[in-house]
Design a protein around this nucleic acid. Structure first.
Lengths: 405, 405
DNA sequence: CCACATTTGTTTGAACTCTTAACAAAATCG
DNA sequence: CGATTTTGTTAAGAGTTCAAACAAATGTGG
C-alpha cells in the first residue's frame, strides 16, 4: 500500500514487464543456483518459452552463465545456469580509525585477497593509496576480468545522492568527497556508505537467510554505537540520510557525559570505550579517556579474554555493558518491532556470556509476547561484516528490484 | 534499492504496464483535478493517444468522471476530468473509550453526517449498532450511490492480515474480530486499523501536502501515547504489526510508575493522564488515578483553558508536559530522521503556548543541523484525524501503487 | 534395436501493451 | 473565411507476454 509520488514517479513503458521479469529471474538464479531453465519457468510460473528469451538476454549482458548439463531421472538433461561471479571482481574498502582494509572479492562475496595499511587521514593521500592498491590487486588477478566497482565503507554520515562524507569525526573529515575523487582517479564505479548501513546491506544481500528478513536492525557497537534499519525490504535513510543514530538516544538523563556533549547517551553506556572505562574503574571526561585508551594497548578483546580466564572485574564490566546494550535494544524492539536484531562489534566475542543475559533483559522489557521472542543474533568480527557490506553496495546495484510507479 | 523477495514476488504480465500507468494517471487526476487529457499526457510524458485509452478505462470502471469543458486561450476547449467522489460513500468509525463516532463521508473525505453513541464494549452489540447506523446513513443519502466500505479505527493493536484486534485495553478486547463480523452483517468491505496508524494514513492520503512527505511520524497523545511511522512512502508495521509503540520507551529509569508496569515511560510523562495528574498535584498509583479521572469531569481541554485564563498551576502543568513531549520527540528525530512530525491529541489546543518550547527543546537535542530543523506541526482534534484516518483506509486501497516485483 | 514416453529447450503466432504519427474537432486570430 | 492552435481520437508499428506446437535429448520396455 505505497502512495505514488506524483512528482517523482516512473511510468511503465512497453519494456517494463521485461525489466521486472528479467530481474526476478536473475534473483531466482542467484538464490537457487544451479538451476535449469525449466525449473526457473516453474518458479516464475511461466512458460519455458519466455524463460528462454529472458535467459538469453541475461547471458548476453553477462549476468548469467551456462554451466554443464546434469543427470536427470528421465528425459533430456537440463543445462544449469549460474550467476556469473568468477570473473567479476569487487574491491571492498573499510576505512577505520587506525587501519584501512582493502579486500579483493569475486561477485559472490568470496574473498580473494586482503590487505591493510595505516589509515591516511588526508583524503587526497588516501585516495591515491587506495587507487594504487586497487589497481595492483586487479592486475594480479586475471587481466580479462571485469571489475564491478569499488565499495567504500567509512565511519561517518554520507549523503547518498552526492556521495559526500558529511562528517566523520574519527577521521576529522567534514564535507569530503572521496567517492568522486577515487572514481576519477581509477575510472571505476565507486559506491560509498557509512558502516552501520553497509553492515545491514551485507545481511540483506550476502546472508544466506537474506530473503527471510526484510525487517531488521543491525546494531554496530565499537567506538561509537550506530544502527542500520531495514524496513519493508529497504534501508531507512531518513530525510537527510541521518536515520539510525540510536547511539545518542539517552538512557538516563542523569547519566555519564558523552562525547557528543549530552548526558546518558546509550553510546556512553555500551560502546567499547564505556566497557574499558568500566574495567579500569576510571571516572574522567570521555575525551580524555579516549585519548588515554588510544595510546594504551588495552582492547575490548583483551578484557573479554581476561573475563574468560577468571578476572572478576573484567567479567563484571562485560556483563554490565551487556545489560546496558539490552536496554537500548529493548527500545528498538518496542519502537520498530523488527523481525530480528543483528549485533556486530568486538563485544560479540563475549556473546556466549552476555547473549542469554541480553535476550532475557530485552524479553522482560518487550511489550508483547512476540516482541519478547525477537531473535538477537551476534555477528562475529572475523567475518569482516564491513567489508562484506562494501561488496553488498555493488551487489545491491546489480540485483535490486527495478523502480516502478 | 529494494531486494526482491524470491518467495513472495509478483511477476509482470503483459497487462502490468497498463496497471501501473492507469494508477499513476488516477493519482495525477486526484492531485491536479480538474485536469484535461492533454495536461495529463504532458505530466505523464506520453502521447495523448495513450491517455485517451487509459482515461476510457478509468471512466468505465467508475474511478474518474468527465466534467465540463472550460475556456482556453486558444484552440479546442479541454474536457476536464475529476475523480468520482460525489456518489461514492465511506462510513468512517472511530471507537473510543467512552464514545463511538460514526461519520458518513464522500470519497474525497468531505463529511456528510456525523453521529456518536456510548461505546458498547460487547463486540456483538457494537457490530449490530454500527451496522444499523451505517445502513441508515447510507439509506438517507441517495439510493443509487455506491459505498466503498467501512473504515474502522480502534484503540489497540490490530493484526493486519486477519483483521483481529489483538489487544485493546480500553475496551477490554483480546483477539476480537469485529472486522469480519461487521462485513458479514452489512455485506460491505470493512477495513480496520489502530489509531496512530490510521492518523498517519490520513496524512498520506487526505492531506493536501500528502505527497510532500513520504517520511514522517504521526504522534498521538491522548490517554496513551502512540506513533504511526511512514518510511519510504509506506507504513511501518513491523514484524508482528506492533511497530510504533513509542509510548513505553523509558525517559528515565527512575521515573514514575506507568500503567504498563514499567517505570519512567514517555507515556507516563506526557499523556493526558500525566498532564492532569501534574495539575492536580497528586502522587498516587496510575491505575487509581485513571479511575478517579474517569469519574471526575476534568479534562485536558479544561486545564488548557484555565492556563489561558491565568491559572499559574495549569500553565506550569501544560508547559511541563510539553517539555517531556519534546524529550520523546527528540529521540524520534534522532533515530528516524523524519521529514516532519505531526502531533495529534488534546494537547495541541495549547500549541500556541508549548509549540515554540517543544521545537526549541527538540532542536537543542538534535544531532545535526538539519534534524534540528525538523518541522513539528500540530493537528487540531476538531479536524477529526481518526475519522479521516478511517476514510484513508479505503482511499489507500483505491489509489495505492500496484505491487510489482 | 526401435517405438514410445518424458523432460528440456526453442520457435511461432496471437493478444495486449506502449509508441508514433496522422487525422478530426473545436476554438481563436487576422 | 482561411490559417493557426490546441484537444482529443484513430490507426499502424514495435516490444512484451502467452499458449501451443515443435525439436532435442534421454531412458524404458519390448
Amino acid at each position: 500500500m505505497r502512495k505514488i509520488d506524483t512528482r517523482n514517479f516512473r511510468r511503465a513503458t512497453r519494456s517494463t514487464p521485461r525489466e521486472i521479469n528479467r530481474q526476478i529471474a536473475l534473483n531466482l538464479v542467484r538464490e537457487h543456483q544451479p538451476i535449469s531453465r525449466a525449473d526457473l519457468a516453474r518458479r516464475l510460473e511461466v512458460g519455458r518459452g519466455l524463460v528462454t528469451s529472458l535467459v538469453n538476454e541475461l547471458i548476453a549482458e553477462g549476468s548469467v552463465v551456462e554451466g554443464v548439463t546434469v543427470d536427470a531421472p528421465r528425459g533430456r538433461r537440463p543445462m544449469m545456469l549460474w550467476v556469473r561471479t568468477h570473473d567479476r571482481f569487487v574491491v571492498a574498502v573499510d576505512v577505520r580509525f587506525s587501519l584501512t582494509y582493502v579486500m579483493l572479492s569475486d561477485f559472490a562475496g568470496t574473498p580473494l585477497a586482503l590487505e591493510s595499511f595505516d589509515t591516511l587521514v588526508e583524503p587526497g593521500e588516501l585516495v591515491e593509496e587506495l587507487a594504487l592498491r586497487a589497481e595492483r590487486l586487479l592486475r594480479t588477478h586475471g587481466a580479462a576480468a571485469t571489475c564491478e566497482g569499488i565499495g567504500l565503507v567509512v565511519p561517518g554520515m554520507v549523503d547518498r545522492r552526492t556521495g559526500v562524507v558529511l562528517n566523520a569525526p574519527q577521521l576529522g573529515w567534514r564535507n569530503v568527497n572521496v567517492r568522486d575523487a577515487l572514481a576519477a582517479r581509477t575510472g571505476l564505479r565507486v559506491m560509498i556508505e557509512n558502516a552501520p548501513i553497509a553492515c545491514a546491506l551485507s545481511q540483506v544481500w550476502l546472508s544466506p537467510r537474506g530473503s527471510e528478513v526484510s525487517n531488521f536492525v543491525y546494531v554496530t557497537v565499537s567506538d561509537g554505537v550506530g544502527a542500520g534499519l531495514v524496513v519493508n525490504g529497504e534501508i531507512v535513510r531518513g530525510h537527510d540520510d541521518t536515520a539510525g543514530e540510536f547511539g545518542h538516544i539517552p538512557i538516563d538523563p542523569d547519566g555519564p557525559e558523552c562525547l557528543c556533549g549530552a548526558r546518558g547517551c546509550w553510546e556512553a553506556y555500551t560502546s567499547n570505550l564505556a566497557l574499558l572505562s568500566r574495567y579500569l574503574g576510571e571516572r574522567q571526561s570521555p575525551a580524555a579517556l579516549r585519548q588515554q585508551l588510544q595510546t594504551s594497548a588495552l582492547t575490548v578483546t583483551d578484557v573479554i579474554a581476561r573475563a574468560r580466564s577468571g578476572d572478576a572485574r573484567a567479567a563484571a564490566a562485560v556483563d554490565e555493558t551487556g545489560h546496558y546494550l539490552a536496554l537500548g535494544l529493548a527500545k528498538i524492539v518496542n519502537a520498530l518491532n523488527p523481525a530480528r536484531i543483528v549485533v556486530g562489534g568486538e563485544i560479540t566475542a563475549a556473546w556466549d556470556r552476555i547473549g542469554p543475559l541480553v535476550r532475557a533483559e530485552v524479553a522482560s522489557r518487550a511489550l508483547t509476547e512476540s516482541a519478547a521472542r525477537t531473535p538477537i543474533v551476534p555477528e562475529q568480527p572475523d567475518t569482516y561484516p564491513r567489508l562484506r557490506g562494501a561488496i553488498a553496495l555493488l551487489a545491491a546495484r546489480a540485483f535490486a528490484a527495478p523502480r516502478v510507479a
